[in-house]
């Protein structure tokens, strides 16, 4: 990501069996968040888990299968008019641990976050254990990071990161 989001995202898109390629342009955003380096195929889930839908205020672009040196292929999500908070950043970290978050203001990247899952995850993720009390009573979701994965504060079971984002 450059220091400016004036450059549009350009993706090479394969068109069926004809083998031809076509440039796919996505308009840059003036203010908002760009989530880059999402592993290909996870972008749609990121959009879903962030609760972005037709009721969201700004425009949203999901670009899939963008060629990437680091990942071979990646997804990118651009969200106009929304600056991800800590909780949302943690959520992205769970789903796409190698992604980067760029906060854009007046067309410039003013903050670049390498996402990292914190040692204590609060308010994000869902305990996959159906018998865990946090799935039936009003309880703040809390998971602590351990060597083997993430331990639910309540049922004490250990899960992999992607199990927490169903």
């Amino acid at each position: 990501m450059s220091q400016s989001d004036k450059m549009p995202i350009v993706a090479m898109q394969q068109l069926g069996n004809r083998g031809k390629t076509q440039m796919l342009n996505v308009e840059p955003i003036e203010n908002g968040t760009v989530i880059d380096h999402i592993r290909a195929g996870k972008g749609k889930k990121v959009v879903e888990m962030l609760g972005i839908d037709k009721n969201s205020a700004g425009r949203v672009a999901l670009v899939m299968n963008v060629p990437s040196k680091r990942l071979n292929k990646k997804d990118i999500v651009k969200i106009e008019g929304t600056f991800l908070n800590e909780e949302q950043t943690n959520l992205v970290a769970l789903m796409a641990p190698q992604s980067t978050i760029n906060i854009i203001k007046n067309g410039k990247v003013v903050e670049k976050r390498e996402v990292e899952i914190p040692n204590l995850l609060k308010k994000v993720g869902i305990c996959p254990n159906p018998n865990c009390i946090c799935n039936t009573e009003h309880a703040e979701r809390i998971f602590s990071k351990e060597e083997q994965g993430f331990r639910c504060h309540y049922c004490e079971r250990n899960f992999k990161a992607d199990e927490l984002v169903r």
């Binding site: 009390i133 946090c134 039936t136 009573e137 309880a139 504060h153 309540y154």
Partner: peptide, 10 residues
């Protein structure tokens, strides 16, 4: 005592 796991913690 509760059948749900984590009830006492909560």
């Amino acid at each position: 005592r509760h059948p749900k796991e984590g009830a006492a913690r909560l």
